[in-house]
Design a protein around this nucleic acid. Structure first.
Length: 274
DNA sequence: ATGACCGGTCGTACCGGA
């Protein structure tokens, strides 16, 4: 029985139009089968088509102006979905982040994949932070529904949560802020609690913990190691066996990087499930 | 290298990011 390997990669590019050259270099180097981008900061019609078509990718995108924006590109087939995140609860203030382009899903090679950009939250207990939690509840509900469907589920993106203290450079410095609060961590844990594996954690070892994916532009944070692991790929075990995960630290170096590094995960699917 | 941000915008300062 043969096996098929499939690599899914996620990257918050912080402006796709400003990152065309780097994204192209990265696609050529890693050749991911499925690409999940966040913070494209452009409308779908502004997506640089020359990035994808010549490399054999088809893509779909959500975007509205110069903020947020998510995209899925695939070279193993792509069937877009118009699913949206829906909340049973109304927003508690005039702020409604479920209307922003932070979620898109598609079916690629028999897998349902989603590219997500979780809200930042700004400050703990602010209206934006409460919206972050409401957004997470909607993502959990959507994920639970998808896990009852036939196609295995993979969700990748910028979750804007560091799931444990191991995922930040200094818990004491960050205490009291967003990304590390008990409520945000519980919201993230509700997703893994559905049975989705955090790929980087699943493949980490005692000697090499799951690597950071984000470093602040300011204060030389990257070179000081002041990072956080806030980008994840969550994998339904039905999708296959996790065999590799890596973070492209090189892509965070040099001139004009994103403040996020790309994260790749490779699964091995049996021929029976492919 | 001992110092340190960036993209996008009805813009040339400001917002939002994490």
């Amino acid at each position: 029985m043969s096996a098929q390997r499939l690599t899914v990669a996620t990257w918050n590019v912080n402006g796709l139009r400003a990152r065309v050259e780097r994204v192209g270099t990265w696609l050529d180097a890693f050749a991911p089968d499925v690409v999940l981008l966040q913070e494209t900061k452009c409308n779908p019609e502004q997506v640089p088509a020359e990035l994808f078509a010549p490399r054999g990718y088809t893509w779909c995108a959500q975007g509205a102006g110069g903020r947020n924006g998510v995209l899925i590109a695939s070279r193993v087939g792509l069937e877009p979905s118009d699913d949206r995140l829906v909340s049973a609860a109304a927003p508690a203030s005039e702020v409604d982040l479920l209307t922003e382009p932070r979620f898109i899903s598609a079916t690629c090679a028999g897998l349902r994949v989603a590219s997500i950009y979780a809200p930042h939250g700004r400050e703990v207990d602010s209206p934006y932070w409460h919206e972050k939690l409401r957004w997470y509840a909607a993502l959990r509900d959507w994920s639970a529904t998808r896990l009852t469907a036939a196609d295995p589920l993979i969700i990748g993106g910028d979750f804007n949560v560091a799931p444990t203290d191991d995922d930040v450079w200094d818990p004491a410095v960050l205490a009291g802020g967003t990304h590390v609060s008990e409520q945000e961590r519980a919201a993230f844990a509700a997703l893994t609690g559905l049975g989705l594996a955090d790929a980087a954690v699943a493949l980490a070892t005692p000697e090499e913990k799951a690597p950071y994916t984000w470093w602040d532009y300011r204060n030389g944070a990257f070179h000081r190691g002041w990072g956080m692991r806030i980008d994840q790929i969550l994998v339904d075990p039905r999708a296959g066996r996790l065999v590799a995960s890596s973070v492209d630290r090189e892509g965070r170096k040099g001139a004009s990087p994103s403040d996020h590094a790309a994260l790749q995960a490779t699964i091995e699917r049996s021929a029976a499930t492919a």
